[in-house]
Simulated assay, not measured.
Amino acid sequence: MREGSSELLAEEDLTHWPDWPAFPVDAAHAAGSELVMLGYMIWPGSITPDSLLGWRPVPDGRGWSARVGTFEQLRDAGMRDAQI
């Protein structure tokens, strides 16, 4: 979702993952790759010790979300060396 909005950017059904509803690291990597294909990256500052590669569980327990930005937003924020 966009920050400050309920507009959904992307949604992926991951119930086929073996340990659903757990969100394994492999699923986090796959979901991040999906975002890149849509033109987004997980905001680097959101990757913290209490997140899973920037992903956090949504309050209703139905899924996971991450703060994302477009490549242009990351560049404009001074993250010119962001690599994927």
Rank of each mutant, 00 (worst) to 15 (best):
M1V: 07
M1G: 12
G4H: 09
S5W: 08
S5M: 06
S5G: 06
S6P: 08
L8W: 02
L9W: 02
A10S: 09
E11T: 07
D13F: 00
L14K: 08
L14P: 00
T15E: 06
H16W: 07
H16C: 04
H16S: 13
W17A: 15
W17K: 12
P18T: 10
P21Y: 11
P21S: 12
A22E: 12
A22R: 15
P24L: 10
P24R: 12
V25T: 11
V25G: 05
D26L: 08
A27I: 02
A27D: 01
A27Y: 03
A30N: 00
A30Y: 00
G32C: 00
S33V: 08
S33T: 13
E34I: 04
L35M: 14
V36I: 13
M37W: 06
G39V: 01
Y40D: 00
Y40L: 01
I42W: 01
I42L: 02
P44V: 00
G45K: 10
S46P: 05
I47E: 11
I47R: 12
T48G: 07
D50V: 13
D50N: 15
S51C: 06
S51P: 06
S51T: 15
L52Q: 12
P57R: 15
P57I: 03
P59R: 06
P59W: 05
P59L: 06
G61A: 06
R62V: 03
W64Q: 10
S65T: 11
S65Y: 02
A66C: 03
V68M: 01
G69S: 06
T70G: 11
E72H: 13
Q73I: 00
Q73Y: 02
R75Q: 15
R75D: 08
D76C: 12
D76I: 05
M79P: 04
M79L: 15
R80A: 13
D81K: 14
A82T: 09
A82K: 10
Q83T: 13
I84F: 12
I84N: 11
